[in-house]
């Protein structure tokens, strides 16, 4: 565990908690893409099936458990408890167009052709594009509430911090995982436009509003 990895995990955890708290306290999931949340739940479940056969540490187990539970709770809020506030007209991204290619790619390019490794690889590929429905929703409505922006910033920073972690591990431990690195770069690049708007607008107290 190095500082980048720890900060990445904390940023990831913060993002998930901010989102749940936003939905819970405002009793509304307006502006949040249920499609992205479904993709994240698939990502966590596919990747953390290793909870069943690999023990790493208490930290590892607890974090994986929290990510799966929190993402399922978010889906429950969006599709059941606060269903009336869900903006499904704008949330029209077709997630099968992300799931199918990620699955095909995982079958073709993986570390080992075994069910758990393929699911792990699938989760890495799917995670890299899972935010697209959310970014699509923001671009359709042309704006995002500041709390939604904070959520997106924390979520985007997490993989960026993981990239620094991988650079560090390459030099310090001679370890690198090309699948995770390439997917992590794609994932982080997808947020760049948002990061720019976040830094130039939201941090200066303005609302995140896209140019018309």
């Amino acid at each position: 565990m190095n500082i980048f990895r720890l900060l990445g995990d904390l940023s990831h955890l913060l993002a998930i908690i901010v989102l749940l708290l936003k939905i819970w306290t405002t009793r509304s999931c307006a502006g949040i893409s249920g499609k992205s949340q479904i993709l994240f739940a698939i990502v966590y479940i596919a990747r953390y099936l290793d909870l069943l056969n690999t023990y790493i540490s208490a930290y590892n187990t607890i974090m994986k458990f929290v990510f799966i539970s929190a993402s399922l709770a978010t889906i429950f809020f969006m599709y059941v408890k606060f269903k009336a506030t869900y903006d499904h007209n704008h949330d029209s991204f077709r997630i099968e167009f992300l799931i199918a290619p990620a699955l095909v790619l995982a079958l073709l390019i993986n570390h080992e052709f075994s069910p758990l490794e393929i699911l792990w690889t699938f989760s890495i590929y799917l995670e890299s594009v899972a935010i697209l429905p959310q970014l699509f929703l923001v671009s359709k409505t042309g704006e995002a509430e500041s709390i939604t922006s904070h959520y997106l910033f924390a979520l985007g920073s997490y993989r960026g911090l993981y990239l620094l972690n991988w650079v560090y591990r390459y030099y310090a431990e001679d370890h690198y995982d090309l699948i995770a690195i390439v997917a992590g770069v794609v994932q982080t690049v997808l947020y760049c436009d948002f990061f720019y708007l976040y830094i130039t607008k939201v941090l200066k107290g303005k609302k995140l509003q896209l140019p018309a």
Binding site: T54, N60, W120, A180
Partner: peptide
């Protein structure tokens, strides 16, 4: 060790 590294990260 490679696989463990993969399962260690979140």
């Amino acid at each position: 060790a490679e696989a463990n590294n993969r399962h260690d990260e979140l």
